[in-house]
Amino acid sequence: MKKVGTPEYNLQDKLKYHLSALSTAAKQVALPLNITTHYPRERRRWPDCFRGYILFDPERCISCFQCSFICPANAIWMKEAPSNRYYPTLDYGKCIFCHFCVDSCPGGALKPTKIHDVAYRTMEEMLTLTEEMVEPPEIIREDKVFVDYVIDTEDLSLKRTKGRDNLIVEIAPSQGVPMVSQCVDRASCIACKVCEKVCESGAVSSIKDEERLIVKMAIDAEKCTGCGLCVKECSMQILRLVRK
């Protein structure tokens, strides 16, 4: 067994280290470097992958419920819109900003932003309704400078640039992997038609086989958006999402 002991310093080393610590301190008092920014007059420029406030684009939403299924904090609840479609509402009182919802959204309807300073007066206000998620919240910008952290070979330094950092990230919505729903065990289908009812894009249809007096379900691979709703709802658990 190897025992880790305290390092042995002789008097000379000790004096040297004390002096170097004290002189470093004196140097910093005279000409300080710093790693703090004067928020809100300056803002740090966060990378585009910053997990902040989430925007929502109803045009792209296919009401697949993926976001609300995956949310570990149970912050997303789906709410019925006048068009009878279900859209997410987001409770920032619960959200832990993991952005699993953004990652899992097949349509790219949820969009990350770099906004991290939204204030609410009450807990109820933190429940953000679908319509409030479309536009970025109103924030008071006092910043005239943004700050970048530059790591060069030995030290960290701040680079200040005049101007305002755009907090809304311009990223192409993720294309995702095109998926399609497929039945893996036709014999077990009991024709409950749940998939047909649940499908938003009308890709599932039922065909009555008059001869054998049974109903067969068919999935139109062209129409299927791969949202996976039917997979979740299937009472016999025989549907799978596969790559197109």
Binding site: A25, Q28, V29, P32, L33, N34, I35, T36, T37, H38, Y39, R41
Partner: peptide, 13 residues
């Protein structure tokens, strides 16, 4: 103030 300068945390004022 001085300890702030030594420790690189000249905070917002």
């Amino acid at each position: 103030k001085l300890v702030g300068r030594m420790q690189w945390r000249v905070g917002p004022r």
